[in-house]
Amino acid sequence: FYLSRALGLGEALTGAVMSIGPVVSALCGVVSGRIVDRLGAGRMIIAGLAMMVVGCLALSMLPGLFGLAGYTAAIVLLTPGYQLFQAANNTAVMLDVGERERGVVSAMLSLSRNLGLVTGAAAMGAVFAFAVGARDIGRAAPEAVASGMRVTFAVAAGLVVVALLIAVGRWRKR
């Protein structure tokens, strides 16, 4: 909605811009895994979450200041943090799993990630719709859509800060 309504991008350009995150993710996946192997899962969970906070805050602010360039820069900041967190979190979980249980735990990690993506998208979609304040988001004013985006990613940043505080607390206990 933000790309098409607030920035006025056409369908093809909206799709191309939306592909930036997955492309960056694909490029960062193996690199993130190697960084986790080298520096350890605990610290990289924290680093990945910290990068995600910066990326969410950037998505909340930069597009309003710099339009498409701000949106793109924010996605490029957010996505490597997500990749680093995922690699580190999966590694940390699998370290404590016995050899006979790795398949089941791996499947549960995949299930929990997919459930999190689906429920997170639904919850953040509700936050966005509430923040836009229009009955029909497709007809909402571009300014309302931009405001909804700012609020949604500010909320996301707050949620990631909570996750970061939990991770820091667990890391200190160890």
Rank of each mutant, 00 (worst) to 15 (best):
L115D: 08
R113N: 14
N90F: 08
R43Y: 08
F153L: 07
A122E: 09
S4H: 14
A92T: 00
S112L: 15
L68S: 01
R34G: 13
G116W: 11
M51D: 05
G48S: 14
D37W: 06
L84K: 03
R113P: 03
D96H: 15
R150I: 12
A163N: 14
C28S: 15
A69Y: 11
P63A: 14
R38I: 11
I137A: 04
V93Q: 10
T91Y: 03
F85P: 05
Y82F: 13
G33Q: 12
I20Q: 01
G21H: 00
L13K: 10
G67K: 07
T14I: 01
A121T: 10
V36Q: 08
R43Q: 03
L68V: 04
R5W: 05
T152C: 10
G33W: 05
T91D: 12
A47K: 06
A26M: 14
G64T: 11
A41F: 12
V93R: 12
I137H: 02
R170A: 15
A74F: 07
F85E: 10
A6P: 02
G10M: 03
L78V: 01
A107N: 09
A140E: 00
S106H: 04
S32D: 15
T79N: 05
R170P: 04
D96Y: 09
T119Q: 09
G169L: 14
L95T: 15
L59H: 02
R102V: 12
A154M: 10
R172G: 12
S106Y: 10
M44D: 02
R150F: 11
M44I: 09
E143A: 14
A163M: 15
S60A: 14
L109K: 01
R34E: 14
R100N: 13
S147W: 09
L57N: 01
F130Q: 05
A107K: 05
V30S: 11
S112R: 04
R34F: 15
T91F: 06
L57A: 11
G133M: 01
V97I: 12
N89W: 06
V30A: 14
A129E: 08
G55E: 03
C28K: 07
A47C: 05
V31C: 06
V17K: 04
G8D: 03
V155R: 03
R174Y: 00
L27M: 09
S147H: 14
L9Y: 00
G70D: 13
S106C: 13
R150E: 07
L68N: 02
R34Q: 13
S19M: 14
M108W: 00
V36I: 09
I45F: 04
E101N: 13
I75Q: 04
E99H: 13
M18G: 07
